[in-house]
Simulated scan of single mutants.
Amino acid sequence: MTLLKVDNLGKSFGGVKAVDGISFELKAGELLALIGPNGAGKSTTFNMVNGQLKADQGSIVFDGHELVGQKPREIWRKGVGRTFQIAETFASLTVAENVQMAMLSHDGKLFSMWRRAADHKRDEALALLDQVGMKAQADRPCSELAYGDVKRVELAIAMANAPKLLLMDEPTAGMAPKERNSLMALTKELVVQRGLAVLFTEHSMDVVFAYADRMIVLARGRLIAQGKPLEIRDHPKVQEVYFGSGKTFEKIAEKAAEVNAAVGAATA
C-alpha cells in the first residue's frame, strides 16, 4: 500500500531551484533511502515532507492527507515520526520520562501542570523502550548514556505517537560502525513488526546498501535515479555525479551486501 506520494515537488531560494519537480512514492513496510552529493536537495526535500519548509509547487500526500502547508506538529499528529542528525533528548530527564513527555505531547496534555511525565503511560513507555533495547536503563538520566544509547532513546521517542511513517535524518551520524549497524538492524526490525514506512537520508553508503529496500538519488535538485540498490549501483549517471568510478561504488555495495547477509542470519 502506498503511504506517501510526492508529486512534482519544488522549492526555490531566490533564483536557485533547490528542489526541481521531483516525484516518488513510499510504501508501508519499506525503507527508502534519499541520497545525493552535497547541495543535491536532500535536506530541502526532507524538510518539506516534515513541514519545516513549505513547497513552492507540487503535493505531498500522506495516508490520504495533503501535507503541503501543514505545520510539523500537525504532521506529527497525523502519524509521522522523526529523528534528527544530532539526537535530541532532555538530558536531565530519565530515559522513560523522555518517552513519556512525547506521549504527553501526543495526548495534548503537555501543558497540564498537575501531571508529571513520570506518571503518564509508564507501562507503554517501558514497552517501547523494551523494543529498542533500553528498558533496563529506563530510570537513568539521559545525560549518563553513551551516544549510541541516546540514539535508541530518540528512536523510542519517535515511536511514541505510533507513527505510520518515520523520517530519519542521517540516523547513524557520529556513530561507530558497530553502533550504526545495530541501530539500522533495529529500525528494520521495527519496520517489519509494525509495517512502518521509513524515509531516511544517510551519508554512510554501507548503511544505505545494507538496509534500504529502495533508493532515490538527487543531484542539483533533480531526481536522477530511483530503484533497488543493485539497480542504483549499476546506474551510470549515479556513478558519474555521485560516486566517481563504478569500481569504488561496487566495493561499497559488496561490503554492504556482506553486512546485510550477516544481519539477516542473526535475525532469522
Rank of each mutant, 00 (worst) to 15 (best):
V207R: 03
A197N: 06
M101S: 04
N181I: 14
K255F: 06
H120P: 04
G51R: 01
F200W: 12
V6C: 03
V19D: 11
L34D: 07
D206W: 07
R82H: 12
D20K: 07
G39H: 08
A40N: 11
R152F: 01
A96W: 00
N161K: 08
F249Q: 14
A96H: 00
H65L: 05
K42I: 08
L183W: 04
V198K: 02
K5I: 11
A18G: 11
T44P: 05
L32D: 05
M168A: 08
A18S: 13
E258N: 09
V238L: 09
A156W: 00
E170F: 04
I22F: 02
I75R: 09
M103W: 00
V238M: 09
S59W: 04
Y242N: 10
Q85V: 12
I60P: 01
R180Y: 01
V61S: 07
V241K: 08
Q193L: 13
A262C: 13
G246A: 10
A55W: 04
M48A: 06
N50H: 08
V132Q: 00
P37Q: 13
L4A: 11
L93S: 10
G81M: 05
G81E: 11
A173S: 15
G15W: 10
V241D: 08
G148L: 01
D63K: 06
M103E: 02
A219I: 07
E179K: 01
K78R: 15
N50S: 15
L167F: 10
R140T: 07
